[in-house]
Nucleic acid binder design. Structure first.
Lengths: 137, 137
DNA sequence: TCCTTTACAAATAAAAATTATCGTAAGGAA
DNA sequence: TTCCTTACGATAATTTTTATTTGTAAAGGA
């Protein structure tokens, strides 16, 4: 069966194995998720899965541009499906990561900072830390 | 002069040991530096230093607000002396990290993003990845 | 000064995270 | 289906990080 994930993998010259499509399914379901949790979740539908397989595939899919690493202060990195550039709101209480659109002004401002420094900008990583609505109490 | 670091430590309720002032001296000299490299450098002036001591002290100094962790895509976290909020320009070729002033507009824009999401903003992490002037060739 | 208390560093030791190896199995093109 | 290539699973081996224990030194009080 050619699922949405199988196509995504093939579009990046990767074979669409069951393990990989399951990993992608879990990542999409969570939005942002750490390695250990991916292992935990995928194991539920594929008990014989090896943790090494997760590591290998995550690394590979990051290399191929299917996934993006989201390094976070004080935590292990989380991973998300690569998508249009955006901002992260990270709750320091519950750990939730939310995506927010990157507004044009901020994009332009940062481009300008890079430019005036003789720096050729490739991509941004804009993380805002604080308390989400639920955790503010 | 190491008294500068001794004062910094004391201001955060930490004792000014030789090891700690040396760690701080190395971090300031490099600007941004990973654990392993700190160990390598401090070992030069203090051969019997244990790597566990580095970890313990880095963790402690981050907790106390003397240091800031800078997590970077595809690398181990680097550490810097805590200072006024700023942007990082990270060269994906040579790995150099440069500090840039955070302009008022960007600061306000991000505050607004947080606000309209019901998010109480605590601190930002704005990293720009690309090629530094030297690496553009 | 001497004693007591506390904190620290060093040295392990232990645990956790990540990467490598290799025989077998599965994907995909023809 | 057949064949070639690549991925998986099962370790094993490393690396990274954290915890524990012990000896020493510094700090403060009598």
């Amino acid at each position: 069966m050619t699922t949405e994930y199988a196509q995504l993998l093939k579009a990046h010259a990767l074979k669409a194995t069951f393990q990989r499509t399951q990993i992608l399914e879990v990542i999409e379901r969570y939005g942002h998720i750490a390695i250990e949790k991916i292992y935990e979740e995928v194991s539920k539908v594929h008990a014989s899965l090896s943790l090494a397989t997760i590591y290998k595939n995550i690394l590979l899919m990051v290399e191929k541009g299917v996934l993006t690493e989201v390094p976070i202060i004080g935590q292990k990195s989380k991973y998300e499906i690569a998508k249009e550039e955006h901002i992260h709101l990270i709750c320091t209480s519950c750990g939730t990561v939310m995506d927010k659109m990157l507004d044009v002004d901020t994009a332009q401002d940062t481009e300008k900072v890079a430019e005036t420094s003789g720096f050729s900008l490739d991509h941004r990583q804009l993380n805002l830390y604080g308390l989400c609505e639920a955790c503010r109490g």
